[in-house]
Amino acid sequence: MGMLPFGSFAAKENNSNRNRIKIPPYLKKGDSIGICCPSGYSTMADIQQSIIQIESWGYQVKLGQTIGKRDFTFGGTDAERAADFQQMMDDDSVKAIMCATGGYGAVRMVDMLNFARFKKKPKWIIGFSDITVLHCHLNQVVHTASLHSKMCGSFPKDWAIADEIQVNTILSIKRALEGEKIVYPIISNTNNRIGEAEGVLVGGNLKILENMSGSISSINTDGKILFVEDVSEPLYNIDRMLCNLLRAGKLANLKGLIIGGFTSIKTDTPDSPFGRDIITIVKEKVDQFNYPVCFDFPVGHQKNNFALKCGLVHRLTVGQDAVSLQEIN
């Protein structure tokens, strides 16, 4: 009998509970947050409210060259968006980068980025939807934590009269950046699968997770807690995207699964209904596994979209009556 292969043992440990992800420094008053457009375009007017709020929190704002730039749907050409993002990553005075908006375009520029300096001096990259490209790449290739949250366009126009959920979701970004540990109690759903899980939190927009499959940016989900959300997709396509994750082996060895919002689902044609709702579609894929699953988690293209720290270890507790997600790094 040969010796235990130490290398594979160590690799296995890395995949389960040892987290080798770098956590960027949390922010202090006076720090600068950069704002730029790696995907769709954003005007100065679009981000005005976010600047006012971020400054009121005691941070400075540094605007990238891509703000107000436009190349059709994009916030500048691929090269311009990549250069602006690169500049933000390499500028030591910028302590976090908030993406102004999603849309489409991050995948067109991500491979142009050089993370050498960023790896030595990591900073929080903030956003969701198309920014899932960056979350995946940061997790799998750059091994750095990032913040999945609302972006500049979602800041309320009038903070004083904004509704409570909108204010709380925006404040969850501030709390996360200040280093407050995340604890989100969630309303239970009778379709949940009960259980507890501890693991690195990863996830984002389902369409983007499928789009990353087969590429270097595709997250190894083994031993992790995965969250997914999407907007404006037809049911058959949600099913097809989950089939991709299943067939690519992304669902088999999860610790837990968090289903966020699937909003503005495109309606079926009346004479050929898909015949399954989101809950059934998910259950069909994960019935063969035993980890906890919760539905209606407040993440998605909706008002209740709370900040989540991708890459950090969390505990997901799915009980009969209560659900919670807690950061335990």
Binding site: T73, Y104, V107, R108, D111, N211, M212, S213, G214, S215, I216, S217
Partner: peptide
Amino acid sequence: IYNIDRMFLQLKRAGH
């Protein structure tokens, strides 16, 4: 069109 671009880039990034 944006989705055709995204899917084609997936093939590229997957090395296909």
